[in-house]
């Protein structure tokens, strides 16, 4: 039980008064990598946003527990400070705020400790090298004018810097070329250890090839219709989702 990191119990969520999630159950333990797959519009992104309590999504019923604590009504920043991270499908552009300053500030908020600037910059530089990111991006405005691939790498960079307990990657692989997907996988490997967990949300399987995945859940029409292991993903790659749809 003490290994339970995230538990979702019978969760119903609406977006703009439309019922999206219709009773989701999920249990993620420390040390695991979970994958949620599903066709467009099945509720994958809603699941991620509901965990972080995006005000645009309304929980109708059900529970989300983080290490046993109900986080249904915590504010997004409180959830983040408890160690949940989400990589956005479409990261927001924030003009006038540099990547370095932003991460320094966020790191301070998440850890509650002062950030030593020199050490922090060295760490940042190291991660950026490993992610094949141009160090010039450190001083550029957050996501402004970044290409799709650069934005996604920047999300992974933030994950590494903030070092959460649970990282949710929402379509981090979508729209990326093969090399960029490899970089993202590498980032996940760097991050992963026995005390944290990763929840990957995707609709294709390329990113899963180089990762050791524990569970694959198939989400269709707001419900998890089946759960399996890595083989399930390969099956979907071949046959698509048609067999899971009613």
């Amino acid at each position: 039980m003490e290994n339970n990191l995230l538990e979702i119990k019978n969760l119903y969520v609406n977006a703009e008064d439309k019922e999206i999630l219709k009773g989701i159950n999920l249990n993620i333990k420390k040390g695991e990598i979970h994958v949620i797959m599903g066709p467009n519009g099945s509720g994958k992104t809603t699941t991620a946003n509901a965990i972080l309590n995006n005000p645009a999504y309304r929980k109708v019923s059900g529970e989300i527990l983080l290490e046993g604590e109900n986080i249904n009504n915590l504010k997004t920043d409180e959830i983040a400070r408890k160690g949940v991270f989400m990589s956005f499908q479409l990261p927001e552009e924030i003009p006038g705020v540099s990547v370095t300053n932003f991460l320094k500030y966020a790191k301070n908020k998440v850890t509650g400790e002062p950030v030593k600037i020199f050490k922090f910059k060295e760490e940042l530089k190291k991660y950026m090298e490993q992610l094949n990111m141009n160090p010039k991006y450190m001083e550029r405005s957050l996501n402004v004018g970044f290409s799709g691939g650069e934005k996604k790498k920047n999300e992974i960079l933030q994950m590494l810097v903030l070092n959460p307990k649970l990282a949710i990657l929402d379509e981090t692989d979508s729209g990326l070329d093969v090399d960029a997907i490899k970089t993202v996988s590498k980032g996940i490997e760097m991050f992963k250890n026995e005390n944290n967990a990763v929840l990957i949300i995707t609709h294709n399987t390329k990113i899963l090839n180089s990762l050791k995945v524990d569970y694959v859940h198939v989400l269709v029409n707001g419900q998890i219709v089946t759960t399996g292991t890595q083989e399930l993903a390969s099956k979907i790659e071949e046959n698509g989702y048609s067999e899971f749809k009613q």
Binding site: T76, F85, E92, A106, V110
Partner: peptide, 14 residues
Amino acid sequence: DQAIFYLMSRGLSE
């Protein structure tokens, strides 16, 4: 609101 949510998901208060 999305930009606020994005920053809050990184631990910043509203």
